[in-house]
Design a protein around this nucleic acid. Structure first.
Lengths: 131, 131
DNA sequence: GGCCCCGCTTACTTCAACGTAACTATGCTC
DNA sequence: GAGCATAGTTACGTTGAAGTAAGCGGGGCC
């Protein structure tokens, strides 16, 4: 169970990286250009988007089509394999839509518990970034 | 879309951290002790397991019960909220079971393409660890 | 008194992800 | 020839997750 080659280590639990799943979502409705992806992704740094797209390409989730024009035009599109990710991603999104508030409430309770216990620490009220 | 408070940033895309999803799976069939979790999780460092469990506790996914005995006995158990993760995790696992081979094949093709292109680099044949 | 058990904690190191800022290449238009 | 547009690349630094190694606490047992 859970050896390094286990599918769970490459499953959509962590699609490529922080942005992988979001990029796949952005491509759900059809091909998109590099600059078109940057807008919904909160202007993610081009370096990071390039890395993400290369990883998705490597894993066979997207194809990259360079039309050799000028100014450059490159389109990214989901492959069939990439489309197989969509149900799992949908399940994750559905979970988020239904339970996000409960999660935040749990965090509030947790922080409140730390406060009541007298272990007050101003930093403790900040998200830890592990989410 | 995709602002910092967006549910997607706390969704099971990345449950707490690398181990969060696996811990939840280990707890699917009932409460487990700290040392019982370490076995299936490939003897993950106690530090890391503690951090993971604290994060899951913070988010309301697991409860921690200290029986105050000696030697210590502590049990971790999924909450109702924690159980809501299971369908999404199942979807991810199902994806892995069905498509893991296709993903590895895609990676092989990708590496082979790099080789054919003459950009041979021995390191390029190693997984990059982003999976 | 010394060792075991279990569930941690602490100190330190490593490494990949992420981000910022600036720069590049190419052809087109003004 | 200056500037614009697109799709990047390069250099650099920060952050945080993960791992290593060792120690702690306190009752039970010999």
């Amino acid at each position: 169970m859970f050896n390094p080659a286990c599918p769970s280590t490459v499953s959509p639990f962590r699609i490529a990286d922080k942005w992988g799943g979001l990029v796949v979502l952005c491509l759900e409705d059809g091909p998109r250009r590099f600059s078109e992806l940057r807008v919904p992704l909160r202007r993610v740094a081009p370096k990071v988007l390039t890395e993400t797209l290369r990883a998705l390409e490597r894993d066979g989730f997207v194809t990259r089509t360079d039309y050799g024009e000028n100014p450059p035009r490159v389109e990214y599109e989901l492959t069939e394999l990439g489309r197989t990710l969509l149900p799992a991603i949908a399940a994750c999104r559905e979970w988020g839509a239904e339970n996000f508030d409960a999660l935040l409430a749990a965090r509030d309770r947790y922080e409140a518990g730390r406060y009541e216990a007298g272990r007050y620490d101003s930093d403790a009220y900040l998200p830890t970034g592990t989410g």
